[in-house]
Design a protein around this nucleic acid. Structure first.
Lengths: 116, 116
DNA sequence: TATATTTGTAACCGATCAGTTACACAATTT
DNA sequence: AAATTGTGTAACTGATCGGTTACAAATATA
């Protein structure tokens, strides 16, 4: 069974769970209440999230509070950031192309370049 | 059938395909050659990637070149960046705690803070 | 024209996924 | 002590996933 962060965040319900508990820990029932699906289904999602380290469970009496541990998202961040240059590079190229095109037409007002 | 960027990048083979063609377009066979799995399997992965807009296929004669269109990764980037504050905040808090703790002990050399 | 090459796709397979219902069990409340 | 609450888990289901083999079709080459 593959259990990594990329797989964990692939499911929209799990992403929603993360957004719910990012700011405040919630117990399992509190999480489940906000979804249409059953409590055991949520329980399974929580299990997956905790197995890959995105949340930790703090037992308090009979309740189990889900606390977000978003550090693991760093793995996703690092992966996606390595490619950012590819799409921003293209946008920069488009930007400079448009700037040049506009300059040669030299009647319209120049495009505001965002950086440098 | 759910077909979004999060689901597309959940599979390690698809992430590897993206890394292969990020810099250079490759035809399907060239991609398939570098993997253990069969050509039809790669063909399916390519289809998924193109269906969610991460690559485009340029037909040249009988060959089909896969060109990465990584702009769509922006969606993932935006999602993960919104949470960056949560884990960097905690790290900063830990950092300042350690700095303070070290200062009060004031014999060990201070921790090098990365920014500001 | 016959043959190679590059590819898509259909049909199938076993594993996993995301959900369900039903039940068990421990902690809390009455 | 009895009832309620919060949760885990087993057993099941249908859908999807990631792979395969086998075949078809279009382009390129001999």
């Amino acid at each position: 069974m593959r259990r990594d962060v990329f797989q964990a965040i692939a499911d929209p319900t799990r992403r929603e769970i993360l957004s719910m508990i990012a700011n405040q820990s919630l117990n399992l029932n509190a999480v489940a209440e906000k979804f249409e699906i059953s409590r055991p289904a949520i329980s399974k999602h929580i299990k997956i999230l905790s197995e890959c380290g995105l949340i930790v469970i703090k037992q308090k009496g009979r309740e189990r509070y889900c606390e977000a541990k978003l550090q693991k998202l760093n793995e996703v961040s690092a992966w996606v950031e390595q490619y950012k240059v590819f799409w921003t590079k293209k946008l920069d190229a488009l930007e400079s192309f448009l700037a040049k095109e506009t300059a040669s037409a030299n009647k319209r007002k120049p495009i505001k370049t965002s950086k440098k």
